[in-house]
Design a protein around this nucleic acid. Structure first.
Length: 186
DNA sequence: GTCCTGTCTG
DNA sequence: CAGACGGGAC
């Protein structure tokens, strides 16, 4: 659910919405699938796009329940599970892979806007490659370890939030000696 | 390309 | 107070 709520939204806001769902005793697929949409939207207010995300969260929870829940989904092979996730309206490439990695612990490397920005500045990618091309690049370059992928992705996010922000602070960046974007600013 | 559209950061 | 924010659908 966090994967849907964090679309174009910082995680600190997602935590508020999840705390609200918990306080309303609504943090379950059954409750979210059946609650009135306007109510759910009100609880999701902190994440922005709350009407849109209320619909998407219900779409996801209804799919999840129809599929038989976590234990049944756990035996589905990764590619097939990704295809199923992508049939849900509101789940795209990144959200599907977030769920595959963090909920199902599959060795799937999540690509996001931060990954594109950081690695294109480093000079390691162009930045406009397809989602799948970038995912394959990372998965070919690293051992298929879900814990490693999760930590790596989290570190990309952290780095892209502070030194490698849209307005970068290259003088404070530990990677500046290896970064093609930083060389020009020395 | 446009819409969705609240909160945090600098 | 402007811009950014772990996107996706149309």
């Amino acid at each position: 659910m966090g994967a849907v709520l964090t679309q174009n939204t910082s995680w600190s806001n997602v935590e508020k919405a999840i705390a609200k769902l918990r306080a309303e005793d609504a943090l379950s697929a059954d409750n979210i699938a059946t609650v009135a949409k306007f109510k759910l939207a009100e609880w999701l207010r902190p994440v922005g796009y709350f009407n849109l995300k209320a619909q998407r969260l219900q779409n996801f929870c209804r799919w999840y329940l129809a599929a038989g829940g976590f234990k049944l989904l756990c035996v589905v092979e990764t590619e097939a599970l990704r295809r199923q996730l992508l049939t849900v309206n509101g789940i795209g490439f990144e959200t599907a892979d977030d769920i595959l990695l963090y909920a199902f612990e599959r060795p799937v490397f999540v690509i996001d806007a931060y990954t594109r920005r950081l690695f294109s500045r480093l000079g390691l990618i162009q930045g406009n490659e397809s989602y799948k091309a970038l995912r394959m690049l990372f998965e070919w370059s690293l051992p298929p370890d879900p814990a490693l992928y999760g930590e790596y992705h989290a570190l990309i996010v952290r780095h892209a939030k502070s030194p490698c922000a849209s307005r970068p602070a290259c003088e404070k960046c530990a990677l500046r000696a290896r970064c093609s974007a930083a060389l020009g600013s020395e």
